[in-house]
Simulated assay, not measured.
Amino acid sequence: MRTIAPTMTRSMQRVAEAVAADPAGCAALTVTGLAEHTRTSEATVVRTARLLGYPGYRDLRLALAGLAAHQESGRPPTVTADIAVDDSLADVVAKLAHDERQTLADTAAGLDPVQLGAAVTALAAARRTDIYGVGASGLVAQDLAQKLLRIGMIAHAHSDPHLAVTNAVQLGARDVAVAITHSGATGDVIEPLRVAFDQGTTTIAITGRPDGSVSQYADHILTTSTARESELRPAAMSSRTSQLLVVDCLFVGVAQRTYERAAPALAASYEALAHRHTPRSPQSHR
């Protein structure tokens, strides 16, 4: 619901908010009752149910009843992610751990396997992959580039917008460009993706807003969970968790598709790092 709420009309958002706030209470309502409770119409309730992935309101109502029963079965109270200034470190750990789990679960649930498969296919066949990201997303871009490099792929992460654009001009139909932007509106990321798109390059967007500007230039869109921001935890921290999950999915998928080449390359990188971290005797330096 958090992920798709921005795409809903205001009346549909009222239905979704009511359902999220009180699943047990809403499960007891008929479609007419929920429409009256949210000051909407029966048609709006049904459209909201369908947008949430259910054939109709009856199916949503059954799911809510099941959720309510699960919540009443003795499960510990839900921990909120809101961190207060006077929280103990133990509470901070518990709240952050809960938020991370929820972020990963939301991302996994909302990730389209068809789009993911198409992105993996493109990356596995790419001559070269350029990845764009700034700020926290730039760290994720570096992570994806490093992973691809370790299995023998040619990959570059760009956080400098000028360098990203000048490199994007060199891409072609055999290449892939990946843009990572939680907001879907980061100009320094969108511009090189647009240039790559215009060059005929296969483009991929990893974003929390699939309706954002970045989608105009993306052949494949991988949606991450909407970040939950608090005063002491910027949205960038939570969004990076979901982006890293998508990156791991891409990496494993590409490694599977290119296993004959990826396995020896990965083994060689492990061996090289192991030798680097092994102390050498003075004789070995002569």
Results as ranks from 00 to 15, higher is better:
253 G>F: 00
152 G>H: 03
226 T>P: 03
69 A>L: 14
185 A>T: 12
140 V>K: 08
2 R>C: 02
179 A>I: 02
282 P>R: 11
279 P>T: 05
276 R>N: 10
204 I>A: 02
232 L>G: 03
123 L>H: 02
125 A>C: 11
131 I>H: 00
7 T>A: 15
138 G>I: 09
133 G>E: 01
139 L>A: 09
257 R>P: 01
117 G>Q: 01
240 R>C: 10
222 L>A: 01
170 Q>S: 13
230 S>F: 07
65 A>C: 11
140 V>L: 08
254 V>Q: 03
105 A>F: 07
281 S>H: 13
21 A>Q: 14
248 D>C: 13
217 Y>R: 07
58 R>T: 11
261 R>T: 10
65 A>L: 14
103 T>K: 00
152 G>P: 01
237 M>E: 14
194 R>V: 10
101 R>L: 10
281 S>K: 07
160 D>I: 03
135 G>V: 04
219 D>Q: 14
262 A>D: 01
17 E>G: 15
47 R>Q: 15
119 A>V: 02
24 A>T: 05
8 M>C: 08
226 T>E: 04
160 D>P: 06
215 S>T: 15
5 A>C: 15
63 A>G: 08
234 P>T: 04
274 A>D: 13
234 P>N: 05
115 Q>F: 00
1 M>C: 06
224 T>S: 09
64 L>Q: 00
286 R>Y: 13
33 G>I: 07
8 M>T: 06
48 T>D: 04
75 R>D: 03
2 R>N: 08
198 D>N: 15
121 T>H: 04
128 R>W: 13
69 A>V: 14
68 A>P: 03
264 P>Y: 06
233 R>A: 12
280 R>Q: 13
279 P>D: 08
162 H>D: 14
111 L>G: 02
1 M>F: 11
96 L>F: 04
159 S>E: 11
169 V>N: 12
